[in-house]
Structures are given as C-alpha cells and as structure tokens.
Design a binder for these strands. Structure first.
Lengths: 225, 225
DNA sequence: AAATATATTTTGCTTAGTCTAAATTATATT
DNA sequence: AATATAATTTAGACTAAGCAAAATATATTT
C-alpha cells in the first residue's frame, strides 16, 4: 500500500490544509516534517504519480479525494489509539502522542473496526479532537476559544488547541480536564487574564490570556451570554 | 535503535536457534524471511558489527546475549499483543498473527508494561506459547504432544505446535481450545488416530495422528498413566 | 521595469535493504 | 585425493528516502 513515510506526508498535508489555505507550500511541509524542501519535492512527485495529491510545480499542493481519504483514515487511527492508551491503559494525555504516531500506521481495517467497538464508538479523543467516523466524516461541535467568552458565562471544556506536552502538563497540574463545567468569574482588562470557577471545586483558578486562547469550550445552553 | 528489519532478523534467528542447533545457516534464515541468501549475508555483517549476533564467515551464526535480549523482547511484545487482540478485541486465534507482526515493533517500554498489567500478567498467549516475563525469562510448562499419550489418560490442552491458519481453523471448527480437559478414549493401532472425549461435551471426537502430534498437553496429576 | 530576495526544483551523492549473477569456500561423492 | 555439488559471499545494480549545493522560478522592493 502506502509507506509510513507517504502516510506521514499525507497527514502533514491534511493538517496544513486544515489550518488555513487551499494550497500549501513545499517549505511548510518541510518544516512540519523536519525534512528539507528538496526531499519534499521528491515526495510530492511520487504522491502526485499515485494521484494522492494534486501538484503543479511551484504552485503548491492540495489533496485529491483519495489522498484525503487516506489522511483521514490515519487521523482516525491515531485518535482511536490515543483514546485506547488513555482510557484503557491508563496513560496521561501528555504521554500518548509518540506511541499513537507509531500505532496509526498499523494496517488492518478489521483492527480499527474492533478497536472502535471496544472503545464504545467514541466521538472525541483525549484532547477533545473529533474522531472521524467509519466513512471519514467528522462530527465536530461548535467550540470557541475560552478567550472569546464573556464574564459570567458558563461553559464546558471540550478540547485544547495546543497539544504540546508542557501545555497539557500545565492543565493536569491545575486539574483542568475535558468535560469540566467552568464559570468565567472575572476578566482582567489590562492583560485579559481570567479567573475561573470550576464546578465541583471550591477554589478559583487564575489563567493567562495565552492559556485561555488554547482552551476550547462549548457555551452552556442555559447560560448568560 | 534497531530497524524493523533488524528486529525481524533477530527474531528469525532466535526462532531457528530454538528449534535445534547451536549455529544456524544463512540459507535457513533466507528461507524463513523469504529473502535471498545474499541479502542475509549483508545483514549478518551489520548485526555482527552491532554485536547482536556472533558470526564468522561460512560458519553460521548465533545470538549474543544482547541480541537474544532484543529477540526475546520482540517475542514478548508479539505474544502480549496477540493476547490483547484475542482477549480484549475478540479476534479469533487464527486471525491475529499478521497484526501482531506489526505491533511487535512498536517502541515503548512503558507501553509494554501497561499492556502487561492490563492483561493481568499473563503467562501464555492464545496459542499456549509462554510469554517471557519482564526480565526475558520464560516459564514454560512440561507439555507433551498428545500423540505420545496413552489410552485412558486424562490431559489438559495447553498449546499447539503448528500455528498455521488451516490447523487453527480445524481446531475451532471442532471446538477444541486451550484449557480443555481431554480423555484419550481410544487409539487405533493401524494409523495411530485417536478418539477423544472432551470434558463438558457428550460427543466424542476422532483425530488423526498428524493432528495429535500438533497438540500440546499437560498430564493430569490424578490421571491413570 | 529592473534588481534583489525568497521559494522551489534539479542534480548528484548517501544509506538501508534488496536482488541477480559471478566467484569463492565448504561439503559430499566417487 | 579429486571432483562435483551445494552453500556462502562478493560485486554491482536498484528503490525509497534523505541531504547539500546549484539552478531556476516567483515575489518583493526600489
């Protein structure tokens, strides 16, 4: 089928396309994968041959339907394995990325199916990212960065933007986790930092604007705007 | 660390050493891995450089202590993953080999440890093969081929020699599985075929000598010899 | 519009693993 | 002991993926 390397390129291209433009550049891919632009050009030719990307010299690349399908399948596997590692094996959410990076390349349709059943048809991974369904369809929810939420709103923490270890560790340390109900108690005008009240806790938590920007939340239906 | 390919060579060499001689040949490895002897020679040089095997031109190879350690670690992972696939995901024992062949190369000490805990510190895989412990020690049990058991003996089915799909399917079809108590009701003199009585079933099962040779059993303590 | 800077591709070389064909060494047979 | 056969290694070539340096295309300034 496709090699690990090809799969990694497709995933990188998919992710880059997600966060912005309709066509992406050679250098952006090289940065993402920490390779050189020259290597990327080589691979783009190959993926183009295989009709997985549409590519015109000097014009940037995008995914074809079949390339997109492959990329999504890998993301699906990545997120399912991450959830497995956290839910079943008891890993912390900042530990699972590298393992999932390997596990996502295991080839077996049936394995994915069984894993999906075993995990109870989950819709989100441990970081709150949506897991595409069997047909590669995402069912996202309408989340907003906490930084855009106004004072006295009640929200639910549904995900994070930054997936880095240090950010995730920060959240763990402050006992912030997906699913929690949060009340925005106060917002400082000068630095936009926030004071939060977490449901079920009696202490309040103070977070910077930078942290708030990286927390994704869902507004409660019965909340004040 | 070591590449997938290197790991596969080490595993192959380990298995070949298990089933016989103290030194094994280039061709035997090439057959096992379905490559050419020339490729094997190249790899042997490399593994020798890395002190994973001891190799003298034209004289055959064996594993060094560190090579053996690597090989056993892979076998451990292979068997743990096989058990996971069968026990947790509900695969049949004839379906899991190819997946385990991939999963055994996932690198993460911690993952193996967690998986081992999750499975409840198992000692045998779905085929009855022993799973080496954390230190690479096997704790085998004294099994015999069913073909060597005499009439009226009571035994427990603990494993199989042939791991091929067709043999495993044959066993499934006849509802033979690891752990079952078996009484050898009769042995035909002319073809050494056997009539078995499986505990908990009321029909008897007739098997060929060939099948009996590939079934590993443990004699019951309180059995007639 | 020309000059410069930046991005991209081409060229040529590297490593890992594989193969075929040829050469060499070991083993078996007369 | 001589020869034939089999096993093993060497030599040279191929593919996948990568990199550095050179060449070319595109973008930005002036």
């Amino acid at each position: 089928m496709n090699s690990f390397t090809e799969e990694n390129y497709l995933k990188a291209i998919y992710n880059l396309l997600e966060s912005g433009d309709r066509k992406i550049s050679t250098t952006s891919i090289s940065k993402r994968l920490t390779t050189t632009p020259a290597s990327v050009t080589d691979m783009l030719k190959k993926l183009s041959e295989k009709k997985l990307i549409s590519y015109e010299k000097y014009k940037g690349v995008s995914l074809t339907a079949s390339g997109k399908k492959v990329a999504i399948a890998i993301i699906r596997k990545h997120r399912l394995w991450e959830l497995f590692l956290v839910e079943k094996l008891g890993f912390k959410w900042d530990e699972v990325h590298d393992m999932a990076e390997q596990l996502e390349h295991i080839q077996s349709e049936k394995l994915v199916e069984k894993l999906y059943n075993y995990l109870g048809h989950p819709r989100f991974d441990p970081h709150g990212d949506p897991i595409p369904d069997e047909n590669g369809i995402f069912h996202p929810i309408e989340t907003l960065p906490l930084s855009g939420i106004s004072k006295n709103s009640k929200v639910t923490l549904t995900g994070v933007l930054d997936h880095g270890t240090s950010f995730l560790r920060y959240l763990s340390k402050n006992e912030l986790s997906i699913g929690q109900k949060i009340l925005v108690k106060d917002i400082q005008e000068f630095d936009k930092s926030m004071t939060l009240l977490i449901q079920g806790k009696n202490t309040s938590l103070h977070i910077s604007h930078d942290v708030a920007r990286n927390l994704l939340v869902l507004k409660d239906k019965n909340a004040k705007s």
